[in-house]
Amino acid sequence: MRVAKAWIVAKKELAVLRKTKSVLYSVLAFPLFVAVGLPLVVMAAGGRGPGIPASVLPVLLDSFSFFFIIGTAALPVTIASYSLVGEKVERSLEPLLATPATDSEILLGKGLAAFLPPIVSTYAGSVVFMALMDKFTIAKLGYPYFPNPTIAIILIAIAPLACLLSVESGIVISSLVSDIRSAQQVGGLMILPFAAIYVASEIGLLPLTWLNLLAISGVLLVVDLLLYLVSRATFRRDDILTRWK
């Protein structure tokens, strides 16, 4: 496996992505929305009447930290299915497979192109989010709430694992459907488990303690490994040209 080859594929994917406005805008918009929108909500709520009690604030902030993961899980599946279903629609996989690159290199390139933009925008968004929230927490709690171990585990472990899960799902979904709309619809289901965790944490059902977060990471890691095997088996040149619909 030559990473340089995969990187050539990834750069091409990113060039196509730049021309696919709808995907490009969602990659840019989601983290911006979270980074600026959530602090605005907190500040607006905190500014009115008695405001948010200092005891509730940490729970709320931890849940909000997890909110990023919903975008991190939603975006890669969209990009991956665009890049694979898109090639199916344009029938451009055949000339690509005719080049001296292995299936793994092509797959890695496509995976990187679906992985990097969402993860970079998640990180960029979270930095803005933490900076804005700290302004608020210093005033309210007397100390800056971020960064802390919770958001560290979320960003360092859960975000990339969720992103990877989403990329792999995109690959598997792409082999099963033949139009981008269906790929998007199936891919949309990706956010459900993460949205469920978010809601559960918000209502106190699943507190986002370290231990819980590490457990979530562990589950993701196992699912990622399994799905890697499935997606690797899906992306075989013989099947792509003769069996993919």
Binding site: K12, K19, T20, S92, L93, E94, P95, A98
Partner: peptide, 13 residues
């Protein structure tokens, strides 16, 4: 070098 039956070009590029 292969010229496939379907041109298969990246239309956006």
């Amino acid at each position: 070098g292969l010229l496939p039956e379907n041109v298969g070009l990246y239309e956006a590029l």
